[in-house]
Design a protein around this nucleic acid. Structure first.
Lengths: 160, 160
DNA sequence: TCCGAACGTTAGGAGGACTAACGATGAGGA
DNA sequence: TCCTCATCGTTAGTCCTCCTAACGTTCGGA
């Protein structure tokens, strides 16, 4: 059924073998955390035939209503050159409609379809599961604290 | 001087435009945090002609003494197929020596040279600066807490 | 009217994390 | 002892994400 190689799992098997200096580097921990997060969400989403970028785009359309591609790009953080293919896939699946903006010929207006809205509800549940799997070792309080700290870092480095 | 394109900075300029649902996803925050971390450490390290992988390898040698390539791979989390090139670069710069293990012809024994040890001291300072730049918006207590939580996640998902 | 900016699009590159496969070597069991 | 299987270093190549460069079109301000 699956032709592509399973996304594997290398990395250290024995965490205690990792030098303390490396183990406590925030840059390294974030990188490794992202790898775990990728592995988990990629697995769940591809099993449903979706991608992270598609999900982010659908959420943004539900949240902010119809928008141009560059607005979607800005809000999702997905590069506008990558957004093209994302919307291509979503349009093909009829989760989204792409029409020229009558007031500005340069823009497309992207709209969420009912099918897209329904699809999004499915993906919402899937994404909730990925959060749970990723944060499994943390208590609810710790999860909230982690998210808060990560938001602060993201906001700081995204600003300007 | 630099022939390669500067690693830019796209992403949302206005964080408030990002849907709340996306903004609070741990998977997304980790991904974005890793991007910021990458940008910062990549910038500082390439300016010094080094890479993250080289640094991790040097640290591991200082911490655990001479080791085979597969041991280094295990301890750093760098894939053994990538370790080849890392050690190639370090050997060429004479920061490291690679000699066949007399007790096991399959292995190489990698040793840190005095030059490598000195190089490592320079990089240590650089890496400290990257941590500081990345974690700038957090207090010392928050930094420690973030690191602790990220370690828990990494340990959990790295185990077995 | 002209110039510069914005928009969507295509092509492509860098870097990280892998898989697959190879030859050589080692170790354990029949 | 012989055979089998695992391990080691190595090469080649894949996938994904993030990002640059350039293009033609369209808009808007001086």
């Amino acid at each position: 059924m699956r032709s592509m190689p399973e996304r594997g799992h290398h990395g250290p098997t024995d965490p205690s073998a990792v030098p303390a200096r490396l183990r406590s580097l925030a840059t390294r921990l974030l990188g490794r955390g992202a790898v775990h997060a990728d592995r988990i969400s990629h697995a769940r989403l591809t099993a449903a035939g979706a991608t992270r970028w598609q999900y982010a785009t659908l959420v943004t359309l539900r949240d902010g209503g119809p928008a141009s591609q560059s607005a979607l790009s800005e809000r999702t953080g997905i590069h506008r050159s990558d957004m093209v293919a994302v919307l291509g896939g979503l349009t093909e699946a009829a989760y989204v409609e792409r029409a020229p903006d009558p007031t500005d010929q340069r823009r497309n207006i992207v709209t969420l379809t009912p099918a897209g809205r329904s699809r999004l509800r499915t993906l919402d549940r899937l994404v909730d599961q990925t959060q749970d799997e990723l944060l499994a070792p943390l208590t609810p309080t710790e999860r909230a604290e982690l998210i808060r700290l990560l938001q602060r870092i993201d906001d700081h480095h995204s600003a300007r």
